[in-house]
Design a binder for these strands. Structure first.
Lengths: 137, 137
DNA sequence: CAGCATCCTCCAGGATACTG
DNA sequence: CAGTATCCTGGAGGATGCTG
């Protein structure tokens, strides 16, 4: 029964599931950041930038759960916790970096495309909004 | 003032922004799917699987806006709309496929890791829940 | 320092119904 | 067929305060 097609359709679910977890903004940035080497919580927090404490905790837990990072807690005062990529994490780093690099390289093209699209749409759709000044209420 | 460091910290925002858009489950799956060639709306819908009509529309709009896909509408009855990757989209396809392939290849390892983690956590945390049968209320 | 707990907001995203 | 429009809900995620 159409093996090839089955294969594609079927593990779209699974892959989608997985992507839902690793392919989010924060996970990617965190993994990328950890690529440099082990890091402490706040170090990571500032390195990533813009991430809340809660989200970082959540993201790290999730990554730990999926076997991408290890959490090492030192029983010192004040406490110190290091996060580090596992082997699996380091392997993931490849694809992630590829995507990250690509993103950085093409930021401009995308911004340009978006501006063009918005300009086009703005004229077409907002014709009845012309009367309103272009500012937020 | 520490150029290298600045660079990293600073465009984390920008890259994060961008990743927030392209690095979501659906975008990746859709782009991946369009890698095969132009496709119609429902074709894509079924190809991806599990995506709602609304989400597909939204995702496609977003991808179009960012210059990854083109939307071609045929003025026929019933209407027919083709979506196709742009050059930018095809370039994105590389990194995306890399990530997708990686995901597919490593599903098992991740599931294993997760199971292990859950087992460990389950015993540690849910000790006081032992009395309750393991089922949903 | 590295969190967990709590509260609260907001919007992603599903379900449903209608249209050109 | 390929949408748009509307309603509605869960949960993502910020802010704040407390702890070991």
């Amino acid at each position: 029964m159409k093996q090839g097609h089955m294969h594609v359709t079927e593990d779209c679910r699974a892959v989608g599931e997985l992507l839902g977890r690793i392919a989010d903004k924060w996970s990617i940035l965190v993994v990328q950041r950890l690529g440099t080497g082990p890091m402490r919580f706040n170090e990571l927090r500032h390195g990533v930038g813009g991430i809340s404490q809660k989200m970082l905790t959540t993201t790290l837990r999730s990554l730990e759960r999926d076997g991408f990072v290890t959490r090492t807690q030192f029983p010192t005062i004040p406490p110190r916790v290091d996060y580090e990529l596992t082997d699996l994490g380091r392997e993931l780093l490849g694809p992630v970096n590829t995507l990250g690099e690509w993103a950085r390289k093409n930021l401009l093209r995308i911004d340009t495309a978006r501006a063009a699209f918005d300009a086009k749409c703005g004229r077409a759709c907002d014709e009845d909004e012309r009367k309103y000044p272009s500012e937020e209420p």
